[in-house]
Design a protein around this nucleic acid. Sequence first.
DNA 1: CTGAAAGCGCTAACAT
DNA 2: ATGTTAGCGCTTTCAG
Lengths: 344, 344
Amino acid sequence: MTAPRRPTLHDVAREVGVSAKTVSRVLNGDGPTSAHTRAKVLAAVERLGFQPNLMARNIRTGGPDTTIGLIVPDMGNPFFGTVGGGIEDTVRGRGLTLLLGSSAEDPDRERALIATFLARRVSALMVVPTTGSVHAHLRVARGSGLPVVFLDRPGTGLAADCVVSSNRLGARDGTAHLIAGGHRRIAFIGDRPTTLYTRRERLAGYRAALEAAGLPYDRSLVVDGHTQAEAAETTVRLLRLPDPPTALLAANNFAAMGTVLGLARTGRRDIALVAFDDLPLAEVLEPPLTAVTQDPAAIGAAAAGLALARLDGDRSRARTVTVPTRLVLRGSGEQPPSRELVTS
Amino acid sequence: MTAPRRPTLHDVAREVGVSAKTVSRVLNGDGPTSAHTRAKVLAAVERLGFQPNLMARNIRTGGPDTTIGLIVPDMGNPFFGTVGGGIEDTVRGRGLTLLLGSSAEDPDRERALIATFLARRVSALMVVPTTGSVHAHLRVARGSGLPVVFLDRPGTGLAADCVVSSNRLGARDGTAHLIAGGHRRIAFIGDRPTTLYTRRERLAGYRAALEAAGLPYDRSLVVDGHTQAEAAETTVRLLRLPDPPTALLAANNFAAMGTVLGLARTGRRDIALVAFDDLPLAEVLEPPLTAVTQDPAAIGAAAAGLALARLDGDRSRARTVTVPTRLVLRGSGEQPPSRELVTS
DNA sequence: CTGAAAGCGCTAACAT
DNA sequence: ATGTTAGCGCTTTCAG
């Protein structure tokens, strides 16, 4: 009692009494076919539940597979999920399907996934590159026409298209907003590793804002918090410093959540906070969260647009698209620096 | 200046001066190969940047493609993203890759995606079925051995494995918790369409709890809120009823967010709230959110486990796995019903 | 309008 | 230990 084989083109042809090629013609609508045979073929297709084997077709036509490979660090992160949605929405009209893998920020896993995707002959490759990964091995594939787009962070060792948020400007604007509110001691709660592209860019924006305002850069105010829990602890520790900050810039969404949590735990309502990356319930928090918001769907759409243009023959040199961030004022950035609460 | 063709097995063979089969043997490690030729082959593979064509291999071996097709309503929803992560983690060791598409709750899109996945000869199919979709057309594929697993909601028209949360029990426990706190008028803010499986199950659990406590079922307390904004409005409206509820059961995460938002807008701190599905900042809210939490990663892992078992020859009849929910008490469910605030 | 033959890139089944 | 032949399911090419 073994499972029956899936029907093939030949099975359909035999059923109808025509050649395989005729069935192929009907299904792909290329050559001319009589209305009569077409009807019979379609009926047989329906009856047998025939599904053409896309792999076999791709082999023969030699073209790339109608898939787009996407590698993200974490599928559960709605930022990357939404990026994926933006890609899918853009390429669906072209009949492309998403092949998705998560690297878990591990360069080895990223490499393995890329190899798998290349072996599958994806028609384009989109990667959120992990820190420490090098993409020189993509040369051959890229050389033979494979569009490669780096997302959220630039890649290394390969000249390829890239789509990122305006990290530096966004962080600068957020920091400037705090400075405009009278703050002079502003902490930066960042990601890890500290070499992470987005962390570096956002820190640069933070520093640029300080500098523009003539404020000193105090290294003790730059701290890490990779997870929510860690950022929360870090926040609590910051506020216990001899000369504590009166405002915080949370430089990613984990840091944002952790910072909110830390402030809630200490009961401090007087600390100003600007988060990089929005949170779902930002407006419900007390005070409502002021945030530098990104547009992940737009990032995905832009990346997909670049890839499609390449597939359509665009041979211009690698471009970097910057998707603007937006400062959304909700209140948490407006807490004034209260001198009387600064403990010596 | 056309792009060079990607190297094939024969290119490598020619480069080394052996037959294609020998290269194949080296790469797949089946037949015996001398250390000498192996080294030469591997060197040539490296030099040419050869990647074996997986589609060609799959065609020849006749096996299914080493992909798992996953269809979710929305990639940006972290619930489904995490489900996907759970699947990927479970199947990665078997060399399976995720093929992902989103149906946007549209049965036609779901059908199209299923057709695409079947055409790609996925080795298993996992679907979060859209309301109104029928899966009878999967019979042929399933009959020839394709494992099909429905996620989060049962499918229609096909006996297949299924993994769901304990929606009914979870909702019952959440409601019972409110009743234990002294509440007698508890509203249910649910999803749309009202025929959605999870909505129906959770409503059934809510009713079961009422019944067990001898409380009447009041239809005017059962309302819809498909989006956060809608649930927020609905919440405000509920509290303006002549005989308003003193407690709310938000039956999904959009409803949860909307309810929190609605309560914040009206400034009502005296309304008890239990949410089905947790929120990221649940513990920071005021009061901290009591929630019936689901385990999306476990749902994905269970589904993948079922599919792998089927691939390994399990021919037992279709099973339904229920992944337990957990009632996490944080405070928002403890607000006592305050008689004096009930307006006539 | 339709069919026969060849071949895409790879591997199973025999050779040697 | 390696090579040859055939063929997976489909489409291209060339004949009818």
